[in-house]
């Protein structure tokens, strides 16, 4: 695994979508600035529709910002799209496995895309399937696997590419609690072991706390409501902040700047 070497710098980021039917503009992200250090495990938490997934798409490079920038080592994932081939990997909420490929072939997919030699592809994909406890299911099609097993394959697929940056968008929220906990643990262990910068996007504070070294709370349009290191979470003087974060993440609570 390639350890991340450059920070992710988000400066004055703004993303506005224009609705094709009504012509109305929706500001998904408004003036977001954030710095994520190399090797950091950060959880971004916020209510549904707060702009988390838009940030995810911008970080992958599938969307261009309306204003502001995201730079990683002086390059942007959207303008210098191909410069990040093999450096960014993603784990989505749904496994997004190709149903026509076996588990092994799904893990091999990103390796094929970045042009790794075939014998190494096989060896590396098998190593990751073993690591995720799926070696006996290497030749199984996704329909033959349980939801948890499919998500394990998706995790193996992301790690197999040896990314510097790992992005996970609600990756464990569709699973039952036991499986989700187990996979969160695996995700954290692997991200720490390989020193990748990992960003988990979630709407669950418990999940954010279980994964992140640092928790960032988004309000409407990705307004930065709080940015807390987990090491400080239990500090006595943070009691009010903790309570305010929990209240803010409740479904109908209005946004409040917490810090």
């Amino acid at each position: 695994m390639t350890a991340a070497s450059a920070p992710i710098e988000i400066a004055g980021l703004r993303k506005v979508f224009r609705q094709t039917t009504s012509g109305q503009s929706i500001t998904a992200i408004d003036q977001l600035s954030l710095r994520i250090e190399p090797g950091e495990l950060i959880a971004i938490v916020g209510k549904t529709g707060c702009g988390k997934s838009t940030l995810f798409d911008l970080l992958i490079g599938l969307e261009h910002p309306t204003a502001g920038s995201i730079t990683i080592g002086g390059k942007t994932p959207y303008d210098d799209f191909n410069a990040f081939r093999g450096k960014i990997a993603t784990i989505f909420q749904q496994d997004r496995l190709f149903p026509w490929r076996s588990a092994l072939d799904n893990v091999k997919l990103p390796l094929e895309l970045i042009g790794i030699a075939e014998d190494i592809q096989h060896e590396r994909a098998m190593t990751w399937l073993k690591r995720l406890g799926l070696e006996k299911f290497a030749n199984a099609y996704p329909r033959e696997l349980s939801g948890g097993m499919r998500q394990r394959v998706a995790i193996a697929r992301a790690f197999a590419v040896q990314p510097e940056i790992l992005l996970a968008d609600e990756s464990f929220s569709a699973l039952d609690e036991v499986t989700a906990n187990e996979l969160r643990k695996t995700f954290v262990e692997l991200a720490r072991e390989f020193k990748s910068t990992a960003i988990l996007i979630t709407h669950q504070l418990e999940e954010a706390m279980a994964v992140g070294d640092r928790i960032v709370v988004f309000g409407k349009s990705a307004a930065l409501l709080a940015d807390v290191r987990m090491a400080d979470w239990d500090r006595a003087d943070y009691a009010l902040l903790r309570e305010a974060i929990q209240n803010t993440l409740q479904a109908n609570a209005p946004d409040a700047r917490l810090k």
Binding site: I60, L62, R85, G86, T90, F92, R96, F98, P110, L113
Partner: peptide, 21 residues
């Protein structure tokens, strides 16, 4: 759309996009 987004996140060439997905 999910599969398209997934493979695009790995930055395929146009040929790979058609061939693999």
């Amino acid at each position: 759309r999910d599969l398209k987004q997934m493979i695009r996140s790995f930055r395929p060439t146009p040929f790979q996009f058609f061939h693999k997905l």
